[in-house]
Design a protein around this nucleic acid. Structure first.
Lengths: 334, 334
DNA sequence: ATATATTTTGCAACCGGTTGCAAAATGTGA
DNA sequence: TCACATTTTGCAACCGGTTGCAAAATATAT
């Protein structure tokens, strides 16, 4: 079906190597030869088989894009940025949806069978060991939105979740709340653990303020809503730092259902600053996570690592900042 | 780096073909041989190179997953379903993000270079000719969420958008609205055109009811909001059939900002029934598009077409139905 | 013009697998 | 046990490219 190198060579009356060389940049080909070959190729509608060439060059330009976040709208933004960024550099994302049923080893094996040049793991809800499994398989790995360990085994690009926890706490303190709470995502996620730790460490500086904690089942609307409905039945804080934006939106819906007002009765601060947080009917005060920068830096780091496979692992941490909208009461003056 | 067939063969003391055969199901290998080879393979950590084998088998098990909808949350659900469904069948999605800058030919060429076995085009906002470009390149194509033409060139799986338009119109009529409007997505999208046509054709049956039309720039929150803010300044219908759910949510936000109430002052009906439509703070009455069925049927059709490349093109159309929630006033009694 | 340096080209082996074919091994029946 | 049918195995060619090397062609210097 497809036109091959050999056919082009025959039609142009040259050797197969000559054809190969005209399509390999940096190879030595005379102008005359190049013209002859290009003409034949055009006439036949030839374009080289990337997979066949990968066999000798050892490069497929395939990048595994691995995630388990197919229910959090912010990841649509993430996939958009990753796919665009990768294809702009001639790399092709092979998408892997990690479900609970499938063990990591399967994905690792599969991606190796397809000889991916590298793997981007985009998730904050996977154990660090997961990204390491790829590295152990000898594949360059960038863990985006991962936890930055003090002795990193793989490249990590993301934010300082501990600091985000502190930042949220400071924000609530500054606004004079006397009874605050952490309403985290799934307890097993490193991002949840770190945000929790940061939040608590900052609150420890303010012993007069009451602090409580709980965790939702997932970073999802429904989980946030359920957890908040449960909380509203018993205890109730003045302000909540929620695991992320989508969780916050679930929390908001629970609050509104209970005939309470935000921010008058309860304050909410989220994390991520996803598109939806900006929607006028949501208008969520939140901590901005610079996903554009994280994604583009992840891609740059991946490209650099492809050229230098033994590159020393590094962590790239981007600062976050509070985006004030309408779900926290104003800061108290002076 | 990676272990090859040859190394396994040497270690097991057998021919390379023997090793190949143990990893090809349906091939003739004795039990004794199989055990020997598997032992050696295990010890070496061998797994076959899918790309190399594709060279002779002509099958890569790669499927191009092409879309331009990276801003509509429903497509996160679509990607989730597609990636899961494909990988369950041993197929690998190569994700392509079609941006406006990139011409279709580029994507076609790229996917051919990677010898994808087939292409799924998942979009309702691409011209039908686009999917055809892949077919002309000799690649099996399934156009999911596409328009079903009377003389289809490629497989199409989706809904009858014209019928959906009629259904929305009937619903508004049944509820006694006397002044209704169509607020569509981008006018160039076939889905918009068809929903519009259906809506108008049904309304033509009810000459006493006033009808107006307008179109938002995109299927997005912001576009819906802007268009509705504009409309509220001048004319104003009693009920709107909006292009899709995300558009509807933008419309809702504009309405609430204008101190009007839904469904008391204005009724809204959307289309898609995405997860968010169910959220209690949105609670959108909408037309359910059965995306699970569309996706799984698309995958089945793709698999069938891989086994039978000259399969006659077909259209698979799934029925939609109204999901009543809180944004239309109740139907008037008998 | 010739000798020498430089560039361009083709040959042939290789990348990591698969597969048709014939030889070798094994199974079956008498 | 032998003749014959059946299964298993290895050889070698092939899939569609790339690349080191040496020969051929061209350029440069004398």
């Amino acid at each position: 079906m497809a036109v091959t190198l050999k056919e082009v060579a025959e039609r142009a009356g040259v050797s197969r190597s000559a054809v190969s060389r005209t399509f390999t940049d940096g190879a030595s080909v005379s102008d005359k030869m190049r013209r002859k070959v290009e003409k034949a190729a055009r006439e036949l509608g030839y374009s080289p088989n990337a997979l066949a060439s990968s066999l000798t060059t050892g490069r497929t330009k395939l990048i595994g894009l691995v995630s388990n976040n197919f229910h959090n709208p912010i990841f649509l933004e993430v996939f958009d940025l990753f796919t665009r960024g990768l294809q702009d550099r001639g790399l092709r994302p092979l998408l892997v949806n990690l479900t609970d049923e499938v063990e990591p080893e399967n994905s690792v094996r599969m991606l190796r069978q397809y000889s991916v040049d590298g793997v981007v793991v985009a998730s904050s809800t996977l154990p660090p060991g997961f990204a390491k499994a790829f590295r152990d398989a000898g594949v360059p790995v960038v863990h985006s939105f991962g936890r930055s360990s003090s002795s990193p085994q793989v490249h990590v690009v993301g934010i300082d979740n501990v600091e985000c926890g502190r930042m949220a706490a400071r924000e609530l303190v500054a606004r004079g709340y006397k009874e605050v709470a952490f309403l985290g995502g799934p307890e097993a996620a490193t991002s949840t653990q770190d945000r929790h730790a940061g939040f608590m460490s900052e609150m420890a500086q303010h012993p007069k303020i009451g602090v409580s904690c709980s965790f939702a089942e997932a970073y999802s609307f429904e989980a946030g809503r359920q957890e908040m409905l449960r909380l509203l039945k018993s205890e109730r804080a003045e302000a909540y730092f929620c695991g992320d934006d989508v969780l916050s939106i679930g929390v908001l819906s629970a609050i509104l259902d209970s005939d309470l007002k935000v921010p008058e009765d309860i304050g909410i601060i989220g994390l991520n600053d996803m598109e939806m947080a900006r929607w006028e009917n949501i208008d969520l005060t939140t901590i901005h996570q610079p996903i554009r920068q994280i994604v583009s830096s992840s891609i740059e780091l991946m490209v650099a690592t492809l050229n230098e496979p033994d590159r020393y692992p590094e962590a790239r941490i981007f600062p976050c900042s509070v985006v004030e909208r309408g779900t926290l009461r104003p800061a108290i003056e002076g």
